[in-house]
């Protein structure tokens, strides 16, 4: 059995803190909840955490400053709560090295899924953990920018991706030349799409191939692995 992870929740609303703590504890996650930057620093020094959930809209010291401070302390995963639709906040946050963001008001289950996904990425494969310094990944002349969640073609033109396609491509790119099993992909796409997940993965992969101009029958970039799974066959440069 996995050890219970300990996470630090920073949100200025007491009710949300309490409810979130209760909710996460029900899911067997240990929670320390604090209300602002000052308390967060104190809690940080007195505890050991596997992940931080940080509300960007804090009174006093801004969430972005706190995120910067946390980044200076360690490379602990950070999930940001951003103001819905405030894309600039989100982009700055991701550029600062947050691992994921959830717009507020968030769906508790989605937050939980994101926390678990980030924890898994951090725990299982330390080598592919989201690197805050990475502004983009370059593979076969394509560029994937995590901060803006966008894909640029060799001419620098954005090629739109659905949420699921983006998550899938990021996972493949972060683990280039390593096989991603169906189970891992299922985790990634869970909650993103309705309908049977199995089919959703195949559909997402075939759409990705189309967008990357990777011929489906003779795919060179995203290869199908016998026995179920996909691999991105390309050298990936971190920008």
């Amino acid at each position: 059995m996995e050890p219970t992870p300990h996470i630090l929740v920073i949100d200025d609303d007491r009710e949300i803190r309490d409810l979130l703590a209760r909710f996460l504890e029900k899911q067997r996650i240990r929670v320390t909840a604090v209300r602002d930057g000052k308390e967060a620093r104190r809690a940080w020094l007195n505890g050991h955490y596997q992940l931080v959930v940080l509300d960007l809209m804090l009174p006093g010291e801004s969430g972005l400053d706190l995120a910067r401070w946390l980044r200076g302390q360690s490379d602990i995963p950070i999930v940001m709560l951003t103001a819905m639709g405030e894309d600039t906040d989100r982009i700055i946050g991701l550029e600062l090295g947050a691992d994921d963001y959830v717009p507020k008001p968030f769906n508790p289950r989605e937050l939980l899924a994101r926390i678990r996904a980030v924890l898994r990425r951090a725990g299982d494969q330390a080598d592919v953990r989201h690197d805050p310094a990475v502004r983009g990944y370059r593979f076969a002349d394509w560029t994937l920018e995590p901060a803006r969640r966008r894909l640029l073609n060799p001419d620098g033109v954005e090629v739109a991706l659905t949420g699921g396609e983006y998550d899938l491509l990021l996972a493949l790119v972060e683990r280039a030349n390593r096989v991603l099993t169906r189970d891992m992909l299922l985790d990634l796409l869970r909650g993103r799409q309705a309908g049977p997940f199995d089919r959703a993965i195949d559909v997402a992969v075939s759409r990705l191939r189309r967008k990357l101009e990777d011929d489906g029958r003779n795919a060179q970039l995203i290869k199908t692995v016998r026995g179920g799974g996909y691999v991105l066959a390309a050298t990936v440069d971190r920008l």
């Binding site: 949300i16 409810l19 209760r22 909710f23 008001p105 508790p108």
Partner: peptide
């Protein structure tokens, strides 16, 4: 946003 977030959390219980 804050009350909606609270309500969503409460609903989970």
């Amino acid at each position: 946003r804050t009350p909606i977030t609270r309500l969503k959390l409460r609903a989970e219980f």
